[in-house]
Simulated assay, not measured.
Amino acid sequence: MSTLEKKQLKEYLERPYNIILKAIHDEAGQYYAARVLEFDGCIATGETKEEAYAAVSEVLEGFIEDMLEDGDPIPEPIGDDQFSGNLRIRMPKSLHRNLSQAAKLEGVSLNQYLIHKLSK
């Protein structure tokens, strides 16, 4: 790995990628799994949250290193600034009618009604 690639690797590793930790209970026992949301297949496990986090950080470093060497594009971290809060969906007219009627019965706007239902 060249000096430039090492510098780029360090810069990428400082970015706020989203690491998701999850407790797992299965036939193998109890452990933690960690994955990096922006990188498909960037997964590791550990007996504790800290071990899983450290392990997935090492895997992430390997992913980025390989991508730099191969000249592949490296994903940007997913942050809140990438979401506008707007969502446009299409639905059957009958569903639209039913939802609008339900919102009217509740005395709220269709938007408020949908947000309430989706947040449950």
Rank of each mutant, 00 (worst) to 15 (best):
3 T>R: 15
5 E>Y: 14
5 E>G: 02
6 K>N: 13
7 K>T: 09
8 Q>N: 15
9 L>H: 09
11 E>G: 05
12 Y>R: 15
14 E>K: 15
15 R>G: 00
18 N>L: 14
19 I>W: 06
20 I>N: 11
23 A>M: 08
23 A>P: 06
24 I>W: 02
24 I>E: 10
26 D>P: 02
39 F>D: 04
41 G>H: 01
43 I>G: 00
44 A>M: 11
45 T>M: 01
46 G>T: 07
46 G>V: 00
47 E>I: 14
47 E>R: 12
48 T>D: 00
50 E>Y: 09
51 E>W: 01
52 A>K: 06
53 Y>H: 14
55 A>K: 00
59 V>Y: 04
59 V>Q: 04
60 L>G: 10
61 E>P: 04
62 G>H: 08
67 M>W: 10
67 M>H: 03
67 M>K: 14
67 M>I: 05
70 D>M: 11
70 D>N: 12
70 D>R: 15
71 G>F: 03
71 G>R: 02
72 D>C: 03
72 D>W: 01
73 P>D: 08
73 P>N: 10
74 I>M: 06
75 P>S: 06
75 P>T: 09
80 D>P: 13
82 Q>Y: 07
83 F>C: 13
84 S>C: 02
84 S>E: 04
85 G>C: 04
86 N>Y: 15
86 N>C: 09
89 I>F: 02
89 I>M: 08
89 I>D: 09
91 M>S: 15
93 K>L: 09
94 S>N: 08
95 L>H: 04
99 L>K: 01
100 S>Y: 03
101 Q>N: 13
102 A>Q: 12
103 A>W: 03
106 E>S: 06
107 G>S: 05
107 G>H: 01
107 G>K: 06
107 G>F: 06
109 S>W: 04
109 S>N: 06
112 Q>D: 13
113 Y>G: 00
114 L>C: 12
114 L>P: 03
116 H>W: 07
116 H>I: 06
116 H>D: 11
117 K>S: 03
118 L>Q: 00
119 S>C: 00
